[in-house]
């Protein structure tokens, strides 16, 4: 994993430079900069209120940042259509298309966003959604709805997939299965950027981590690097030491 990371450091897929977002006088995130490497699973970790969702929404263009810029691998500023071509973001806590059956919603994800129809069966099977395809999204349980959202994101074609809290509402078994599915997609060449508040989940799934606290970057690197830098003995200790 480290070798993979080292090979990729020369050409980041996405460079985040100096992103800030303020709501009135409240600075939600300040001068956030980091890089996203191709094919990696990058984790965004931080305590509640650290600004993880705000950062994701600014990167996805859902929320206008106060300052800062994204750059492509070719060092070109990333805006508008170019951003839509590169990044897809799956927010947490949404229940889109509540009156539509899951099967149709997944077809829509492929058709509307131009995803690969060949992936559809694989994603449905890997997230065990087959028995739910005729169910309306609105009647799904929290965990089922989360798996449906994960499937929606995985069916989109953008090279970078950002998912806010991918394991929220999933039990241990489902978390492990979802993590395996995400790893499978990353191995297939897709870059995943996940916001995770459970440190253990983040350590298990992610190749590298960005630690955000108080709206600022407190650390970036592999779990081992963060632990080493903080002087702690494990990632949880590093998390507590750095935030």
């Amino acid at each position: 994993m480290v070798l993979l990371w080292q090979n990729m450091t020369t050409s980041p897929l996405l460079t985040v430079s100096g992103i800030s977002k303020a709501f009135g006088r409240l600075a939600a995130i300040e001068d956030v900069s980091f890089r996203v490497e191709p094919g990696e699973i990058l984790g965004l970790i931080g305590p509640n209120g650290a600004g993880k969702t705000t950062l994701f929404e600014c990167l996805a263009g859902v929320l206008p940042p106060t300052r800062g810029q994204l750059y492509t691998a070719a060092d070109q500023p990333l805006d508008g259509d170019a951003r839509s071509s590169l990044i897809f973001y799956v927010p947490d806590g949404i229940r889109p298309y509540p009156d539509q059956p899951l099967g149709w919603v997944l077809d829509f994800a492929v058709g509307f966003f131009g995803g690969h129809a060949d992936n559809l069966r694989r994603v449905i099977d890997s997230l065990q959604l087959a028995p739910l395809l005729k169910q309306r999204i609105g009647v799904l349980s929290k965990g089922q709805a989360k798996r449906a959202l994960l499937a929606f994101g995985l069916l989109t074609p953008q090279p970078i997939l950002m998912i806010d809290e991918p394991f929220e509402g999933l039990d241990l078994k489902q978390t492990r299965e979802a993590a395996a599915t995400l790893r499978e997609h990353a191995n297939g060449g897709r870059t995943l950027f996940l916001s995770i508040h459970q440190i253990a989940d983040a350590a298990r799934v992610c190749d590298r981590l960005v630690l955000l606290s108080g709206g600022r970057i407190r650390g970036e690197g592999t779990a081992a690097e963060l632990v080493s830098r903080s002087g702690a003995t494990d990632l949880e200790g590093a998390f507590l030491a750095l935030t």
Binding site: E57, A60, G61, V62, D81, S84, S85, I87, F88, Y89, V90, P91, G93, I94, R95, P96, Y97, P98, F112, F113, F152
Partner: peptide, 15 residues
């Protein structure tokens, strides 16, 4: 409705 249930956040990412 799209805004309320979050579909807008998904769809606005399409070009």
């Amino acid at each position: 409705g799209d805004r309320q249930n979050g579909a807008l956040k998904l769809e606005m990412q399409q070009r």
